[in-house]
Amino acid sequence: MAEQKSIIIIDDHPLFREGLKTIISRDDRFKVVGEAGSGHEGLEMTKRLKPDLVVVDISLPDQSGIQLTRDLRRHFSETKILIVSMHSKIDYIAEAFQAGATGYVVKESASERLLQGLKSVAKGDYYLDSSVSHAVVENLMKSPLKAAKITDADYATLTPREQEVMRFLAEGLSSKAVAEKLFISPKTVENHRANIMNKLGLHSTIELVRYAAKLGLIDVDLWKD
C-alpha cells in the first residue's frame, strides 16, 4: 500500500470536524493526524506535524481561511490546501485559489466530494466542487476577454528583417522604397512581404496597416506631427 497522506483539519465547529474525520476515515490512503479550531492553532499544528494536506474552513473565529491559506502557502510550500466552505459564491472561490489553495469543496456536498477532492489535491491537481463549477464557468463566460494582450504570438514569429520590412510597408512605403532603405532588392522585399502576410494571416496592405496600428507599430496621429 502506498504511504498514507497525513491531514490536518482546521475548523471551529467540533461537530463538523467530526463529520469530516468520519468521511476521511473511509479511505485508508488518508489519515487525520490533527485537528485545530482556529487559524492560529492550525498554523502552529502545521508547523509541528508537517502534514501532506490541510483542510481549511473558509471562516474561522480568529482569521479568514483565505488569510490562513496565504500564510500556510508561504511557510509550507509543500503542504496542499483544500478549502471547505459554506459559500458557493464565485468571489470566495477565486480568492481561495489565488491565495494558494488547490481544492475547493462546498460544505453541503462534502460527504460525496471531500474524498474526491483530497485525492486530486494530493496528486497535485486542482479540484473544484462540481456543484459550483457551473457558476464558475458562467462567470468566466460573462467576463470580457482581457484587454491586455501580453504578447502577440504571430508577430513574435517574424524575423528581425521581416519586422523592419513590415514597419516600412505599414508606413506606406513601396517595395522599391523599402528595398532602397534596406539595401536589398525589390524582389527580396516582395518575398519578405509574402512571408509576413502569411505568418500574420493577412491578405491585403490595408489589413497589414490595421494590424500594425493595433500592435502599436504605427500611429496615424503621430505621423502628422
Binding site: 508577430y155 528581425p160 528583417r161 519586422q163 523592419e164 500592435l215 502599436g216 507599430l217
Partner: peptide, 13 residues
C-alpha cells in the same frame, strides 16, 4: 501601454 519590438528598435507607447 504598448511595448513592441520593431527591429532594430523597441517602441514604447
Amino acid at each position: 501601454i504598448k511595448l513592441v519590438a520593431s527591429f532594430p528598435n523597441i517602441i514604447l507607447r
